[in-house]
């Protein structure tokens, strides 16, 4: 993926390693940073049997942290999301900078109250008396045959809540830079990791760096249509753009990165040039990031549009189990290509 934001550095590491490196560096830099979650070390309480780190996280994003920082700052939790997400919010309100991991975003139902009624509202309800520098890391994404309770891409619902911020990195570089920004930010932020990105490698600077929250980036310049990708869908949009280029169709691809705040200006500017918009979004379509962006573009740059703002998203169904259906559920290159051609009357 080419990018206008890429910095120097040629060392390539995986998305999962970029997350791990960020956590380690931020914990080294600030002793107030703690992390907690289910299985983030693994085998908790078995130190006497020589177990320190059975897993290092269900996806190995927290590997090695407990050895370096100890169990006071790397806390394996029981299966109690309401309590530990709430405790992380309470800790973040009283002097720590807590990171908590919700294993899959599908599990949000059991702890949504803490996020929505406490984290998002405390500063406001308290008249600005408190800062809640809390980061919730969680996982999204279908494509693994994991069915409807381990595969959803619920980022849109979080963008609905005033008081929360949210980011969806798309590669190793944005993963490290955005997670660093989340941890250092004084507001509660949700960091969405797509399971399909963990193994993807890319150049990542070794030193800590911050990518600004609330900023999209253009990853491919073009003139005929603007494709906005979110998380892994940025890759789908790029692949479609490469195919279309062979036919002389020139797509601009924007990587949204931030789902709250949303960088409307960046999108508007592109649409003013291309006159067409397609949002490629793995979340379901109703009241979604895709519908939000389409409605804003229609309101704000209506006169520039040569075609209706359009969406390629998951359907309004849960994620199915069988690959035969799951492959159809996920937005893919072909659906994007067909939609581009439809907007261009080809």
């Amino acid at each position: 993926m080419t990018t206008t934001l890429q910095t120097t550095g040629t060392r390539e590491i995986q998305f999962r390693e970029a997350i791990n490196e960020c956590l380690r560096q931020e914990m080294e830099l600030d002793e107030n940073v703690i992390i907690m979650g289910e299985e983030i070390a693994g085998g908790a309480g078995r130190e006497e049997q020589g177990v320190e780190d059975a897993w290092g996280g269900p996806f190995r994003t927290t590997v090695g942290l407990i050895q370096q920082f100890g169990k006071d700052r790397v806390l394996d939790t029981p299966l109690s999301e309401a309590a530990f997400i709430g405790a992380a919010i309470g800790a973040s309100s009283t002097g720590l900078r807590a990171v908590a991991e919700l294993m899959f975003v599908d599990f949000i139902g059991v702890c949504m109250d803490q996020l929505v009624n406490n984290a998002a509202k405390m500063r406001y309800m308290f008249g600005g008396q408190v800062k809640v520098p809390f980061t919730m890391m969680t996982r999204i994404g279908a494509g693994f045959g994991a069915a409807a309770q381990h595969s959803e891409s619920y980022y849109s619902i979080f963008s609905h809540f005033p008081g929360l911020k949210g980011v969806c990195p798309s590669d190793a570089y944005t993963a490290k830079g955005l997670l660093t920004a989340c941890i250092r930010d004084d507001d509660p932020v949700v960091f969405f990791e797509h399971k399909g990105l963990y193994g993807i490698s890319g150049p990542v600077p070794e030193e800590p760096y911050v990518l600004p929250l609330g900023k999209a980036r253009t990853v491919r310049e073009g003139t005929d249509v603007t494709l906005v990708g979110i998380s892994k869908m940025t890759w789908t949009a790029l692949a479609a753009a490469e195919e279309l280029a062979k036919e002389g169709i020139n797509c601009e691809v924007i990587d949204l990165l931030s789902v709250s705040p949303i960088d409307y200006d960046h999108i508007n500017e592109s649409v003013q040039k291309t006159h067409r918009l397609i949002v490629v979004d793995e979340d379901t379509p109703v009241c979604s990031m895709a519908s939000e962006i389409c409605s804003r573009v229609a309101e704000e740059v209506f006169d520039y549009l040569d075609a209706p703002p359009s969406r390629v998203t998951a359907p309004h169904t849960p994620v199915p189990y069988s690959r035969a259906m799951e492959n159809e559920y996920m937005p893919n290159e072909t659906r994007v290509i067909n939609t581009v051609k439809k907007l261009l009357n080809l």
Binding site: I34, D72, A87, I89, G90, A91, T94, L96
Partner: peptide, 20 residues
Amino acid sequence: NGVVGASIPLAVGAALTAKV
């Protein structure tokens, strides 16, 4: 707090800060 029980983990979190 307007949600019954919602402040309980916040106090637990404040206690966690004290411990850390």
